[in-house]
Every structure is written in structure tokens, then in C-alpha cells.
Design a binder for these strands. Sequence first.
DNA 1: CGTCCACCAAATCCGCCTTGTTCATCTGGG
DNA 2: CCCAGATGAACAAGGCGGATTTGGTGGACG
Lengths: 89, 89
Amino acid sequence: MNKADLVDAVAAELKTSRADAARAVETILEAIQRGLKTDAKVAIAGFGTFVRRERKARKGINPVTKQPIQIAATTTCGFRPSPQLRDVL
Amino acid sequence: MNKADLVDAVAAELKTSRADAARAVETILEAIQRGLKTDAKVAIAGFGTFVRRERKARKGINPVTKQPIQIAATTTCGFRPSPQLRDVL
DNA sequence: CGTCCACCAAATCCGCCTTGTTCATCTGGG
DNA sequence: CCCAGATGAACAAGGCGGATTTGGTGGACG
């Protein structure tokens, strides 16, 4: 499923234009991004929780050369689906 | 950040009523749920990708009694943030 | 206000994560 | 509607990160 498909579904459901639906999708995603950046956690009841996560440096292997490499610490984010979402899947 | 906060941010950004923003959020989340259920993957460019994931049965520990327990196989979903989202965080 | 949901603890093992190229697909503006 | 530019998926192997379990409670949601 693409962003275009998502926008289509939203437009159909809300009975709005595709442009409005696209704007809504964009805005919500940006809001989540900002929330993650500022609060480090975005909990959406009945759906799941986005969590900003600091990953320490660790050792890994370059799958191409198969040589040990050092992976620098990064900041990523995880997602914990709510039980409700799990039941759907 | 709560769903209420998210709705507030969206309403402010789109200059719509809180009720409309709430409907938009709900609708989009439901659309993502359906997409995950039917297509097993929802790719949103510049944000990330939701992936339905099958998890095998394994052994765990009851945190209360600290006794080993058997965990049945479940279906859950993961989220891979796009490089763009990672850069923001 | 009543109900429902997320969080928290400790311990374990599953599977995600890394690199880098190629290719398919998607995107968004003209 | 279409094309050029761009984005991400796939693939390899292996180590270690983190997702997961129960049950109560505080807080959120409608």
C-alpha cells in the first residue's frame, strides 16, 4: 500500500477531495514527527506507540565483505502496536 | 504526546475544528490498519514503512512469578523509519 | 464519569540491524 | 498524464538489541 492508496482511502472515507486528504496525511505525519522529536514518545490509543530510541554503538558485520565493522550510535524510532491492532492482524 | 495532543496539533495546522481533525486522524489510522491487514505492508515515503510480521512461538518468563512460560506464535507489526525520519530525530 | 488502554517490573531468546549495489517503483511538478 | 528524479526493497552473515510475557494501576478517552 502506497501513500497514494492511503490518500485515496482517506479521501473516500472522509468524502473530501484527494488534495485535502493528502494535506491531512502530510500534516498528521509531520505532527507525529514533531511529537517524536520533542516528547520522545507518541502514544495513540487503540493503534500503537511510537518511541524514539537511542541505539548505542555496537559491532556488526559488513554483509558484503563479511568483515567486522563498528556501527556508530544512532537515533531511530520503534513502534509498539496496541493489542487492538494486533487483534486485527 | 497523546492522541489529544496530536489532534490539537493537526487542527491548528489545518485550521479546522478539533472534531474534524479527530475524524481525520481516526480515519487515517484505520486506513493504515486495513492496509496492513490486506497488503501486509504500508509504505509511506519520507516517513517509514509498516510491515505485518509473523512471530514464532518462543519461551519467556512471567515477570511476576518469574516462572518460565511458553509464548504462542503471534502476528504483530513493525515499523521501519525512513532515512528522512531518522535525520529528524 | 465509567471504561479501557498503556506502562512497569526482570529475564530470555528471536530476529532486527548493519553495507552497498541494482532494480523496480513511486513521486510530484510541468 | 507523463517523465525524470528519487526513494526503498532485496540480498548476503552474524551479533546483540529489544520485543515479549502478567497483572495492577494511573491516566486517558469518549
